[in-house]
Design a protein around this nucleic acid. Structure first.
Length: 491
RNA sequence: GGCGGCAUAGCCAAGUAGCAAGGCGGCGGUCUGCAAAACCGCUAUUCGCCGGUGCAAAUCCGGCUGCCGCCUCCA
């Protein structure tokens, strides 16, 4: 069975078939960039990343578009607040967002259009809505006439009549009906503006996504993703605008990501109740954050919690420990348990189940000591977008440690061991071309010294060496009294 | 108030009709001078509550309870 996705439009799982052969167009509602990204934004981006990766894995050619809404009421407010041009604020937040995405190994979208770069398309779209009678001008604003679009509410499962009670008209607005929403807003003095048939103004929120998505992906395209909170009114309005203008179906599959909550409540910029991704990444490795987020199915709510993140860190460490127990891993063409993994991912991107398969493989890997199992684990981690992490040998630290050890041997008068270390050094350097190749030999030498000390029950010295190596990111495991092995920590 | 979602072990989380994946934690063990390491084993006769359908239900239907969200800016 092929890929099945949960479509918000139908509220059910549907078989996925692209509009054009194997080409898939995806539009993701990115941020309104009046503030820096928090973990909720990143969850949505990560979800898109996993989807795009999986579609490509299945052999589809994907064009992925993710927008930045850089002109809206909020950013204009910030401009006044900070006395900074809105473009500076937008640029700063866009950079932070892309930085965080890169950190998390979220593949870049094919294109990142900004509302302000597509004013022409937006004006054309507004004009076409006016021409068709779906929008009207009123004192420099242009409003979409919701009641003219019978399918309004289909995505969010709302009826127009239910909406009436909640709808309001702000004192600054000139709507004919409280349900109507602005597609073009006239500019007040000091606000950014573009020239339009309705005077100086700027796009309303919603219209930019219709204009940009159709510009890059066509009037009908395959997948539109975003956070659950965008279903209403944002995506509902996008559908209304786009379908009214073209007379065609706008989007075929609507996918929505569940919340990240904090203290049981939804994170939101508007309430100041959120955790910046920048701060989170100071505490947790990107792969740990990815594991934490993928452990729950994308449509479910996730409670943000350090305990959960710490759990993810333990689990991640276990995966890494397993993989790093192989010196040279290599790749595999056809991994084990491929059918199970494929089924899980095809079932609406069930990453939770997919991760379960990875853990099963690791367990089996230890039992059977089969390198193909480790290669399969690596293969699946990559498929899910985890960064390959190969620990850097801490060469400098090791050189400092061996110097310390030699000095201590000297002061304690252990010339016998000291001589062995010197001999060992000569042997290491006899057959080496590059300094970094010396690393395993030097660590081995330190471990030999430690084992000699252990044999003599010089435990405090031995434990000192163990702890110095641990400081440098080298974890020792004693096999027996004569030999020890080590593993490098990923830092 | 209207609409929608969720409720599975100590915690997290898959599973949507046929013996309850997995992770974290905990306990026991192997190894060890010790271990914070590593591995192995154990850890839900039961899926919020009540009733129904059915050979069979966590899974379908009805009711109840609790939590969350949307209806206003929001990923």
């Amino acid at each position: 069975m092929g890929l099945r996705l949960f479509n918000t439009l139908s509220s059910r799982l549907e078989d996925f078939t692209p509009l054009n052969d194997n080409k898939v167009g995806i539009y993701t509602c990115g941020m309104t960039v009046q503030g820096p990204p928090h973990i909720g934004h990143i969850r949505a981006a990560l979800n898109r990343d996993v989807l795009v990766r999986w579609l490509r894995y299945l052999g589809y050619e994907v064009i992925s578009v993710e927008n930045f809404t850089d002109v809206d009421d909020k950013i204009i407010q910030k401009q006044k607040e900070y006395k900074l041009d809105w473009r500076i604020i937008a640029q700063g937040n866009i950079e932070k967002y892309l930085w965080a995405c890169d950190q998390l190994n979220i593949e870049r979208a094919t294109v990142y259009p900004r509302a302000s770069q597509h004013i022409e398309e937006i004006i054309d779209l507004v004009q076409s809505l006016v021409d068709k009678g779906y929008a009207y001008e009123s004192e420099g604003d242009v409003y979409y006439r919701v009641r003219n679009f019978p399918r309004y509410g289909r995505l969010s499962k709302k009826s127009i009549d239910e909406l009436v009670s909640g709808a309001r008209i702000e004192p600054t607005e000139h709507k004919k009906d409280p349900l109507d929403f602005a597609v073009w807003k006239s500019a007040k003095s000091g606000e950014p503006y573009w020239l339009s048939p309705w005077g100086k103004g700027r796009p309303g929120w919603h219209i930019e996504c219709s204009a940009m998505s159709m510009h890059y992906l066509g009037e009908t395209f395959d997948i539109h993703t975003g956070g659950e909170d965008l279903i209403f009114p944002h995506h509902e309005n996008e559908i209304a605008q786009s379908e009214a203008a073209t007379g065609k179906q706008f989007v075929r599959y609507w996918l929505h990501t569940g919340w990240v909550t904090l203290g049981g409540e939804k994170m939101a910029k508007s309430t100041g109740h959120f955790l910046l991704i920048e701060d989170l990444l100071k505490e947790y490795r990107p792969n740990v954050v990815r594991l934490y987020l993928l452990k729950t199915h994308y449509r479910n709510q996730i409670e943000f919690s350090r305990e959960r993140l710490n759990e993810a860190r333990s689990a991640y460490l276990r995966i890494q420990t397993y993989l790093h127990s192989f010196k040279e891993l290599g790749d595999i063409e056809k991994p084990l348990m491929l059918e199970e993994f494929t089924q899980a991912m095809n079932d609406d991107l069930n990453t939770s189940r997919a991760l379960g398969i990875i853990y099963e493989l690791i367990k089996k890997g230890y039992e059977e000591n089969d390198i193909d199992i480790a290669r399969s684990v690596k293969y699946y981690l990559r498929t899910l977008g985890f960064k390959d992490e190969i620990p850097e040998p801490p060469f400098e630290s090791v050189m400092i440690i061996i110097k310390e050890v030699m000095e201590r041997l000297k002061t304690e008068g252990r010339t016998e061991i000291l001589d062995k270390v010197k001999d060992g050094f000569l042997r290491i350097f006899e057959d080496v071309n590059q300094m970094k190749d010396v690393f395993p030999g030097v660590v081995g030498l330190i471990l030999d010294v430690r084992n000699m000390l252990r044999k003599e029950k010089e435990y405090s010295f031995a434990d000192y060496i163990r702890s110095r190596l641990a400081d440098a990111g080298i974890q020792i495991q004693d096999i027996n009294i004569n030999s020890s092995t080590y593993r490098l920590e990923v830092r």
